[in-house]
Design a protein around this nucleic acid. Sequence first.
DNA 1: CTACTTGCAAAATATTTGCGTTATT
DNA 2: AATAACGCAAATATTTTGCAAGTAG
Lengths: 130, 130
Amino acid sequence: MERKSQQKNTILKVLKGTTSHPTADWIYSEVRKEIPNVSLGTIYRNLRQLKARGKILKLHIDDVSSRFDYNTKSHCHFRCTKCKQVFDLIVPECSKMIEQLSRQRGLQISSYMVTFSGLCVKCQKQKYPN
Amino acid sequence: MERKSQQKNTILKVLKGTTSHPTADWIYSEVRKEIPNVSLGTIYRNLRQLKARGKILKLHIDDVSSRFDYNTKSHCHFRCTKCKQVFDLIVPECSKMIEQLSRQRGLQISSYMVTFSGLCVKCQKQKYPN
DNA sequence: CTACTTGCAAAATATTTGCGTTATT
DNA sequence: AATAACGCAAATATTTTGCAAGTAG
């Protein structure tokens, strides 16, 4: 059975306290502030377990590395191609679309991953690219 | 400037001839049937170039490795969690949704990646899991 | 000829795993 | 006491890159 550990708690706390959809490596550096000798292997092992138990989401937004999300409800993301930030998007039309898809095409949809890419409002306003 | 090469042509031909959204490694093994001494580095280099020139899409559907698609129009995918196949989905509602998003929220959306996961029609019918 | 492309091998990244030890239940 | 979780280091897997040679334009 699952056991508690300071490491797992801290990982969850870090994830809960950010909206940045962080990578394993970023989580590692955050957790190390509290548990300096934590190992990266432990981060990965816990993230995998948490995902398997449905407590977090693993996102495949870019090809560099996976990102993790404390918000386990399927939702949409917007990735700015300039500042590389990933924002949550609440898109009510999306759930309607899925309902339609399963009704009309017989697909049993258990989750979805939607990522829009483009320029966020902030970066659109910047005249000179960085 | 860009130059032609047998390797690049073959990669494109292979991609054009499949709907399986293959990985670099699968493409490699297909290309090798025609050019036995092609190198994996060449595959990756060409795939990167082709993507940069907008001739193919790079998909981030699962965490194992990237997949590539000859169909460069943004479109939706369905990934069966059982047989692991990835199918194209034409979802007209999707383009409407994007139009709405840019109009209502000021986002400049240049592309999107939509992946639904679940059981495909075929796998739903199978009584005994493999 | 110029310089893009290739094959090869080594390097860089991201993630997983084996093992002996620690800690939770 | 049993065994899940840990830290560490080595192993995998995927993708990139440096370099000398080949080739398209």
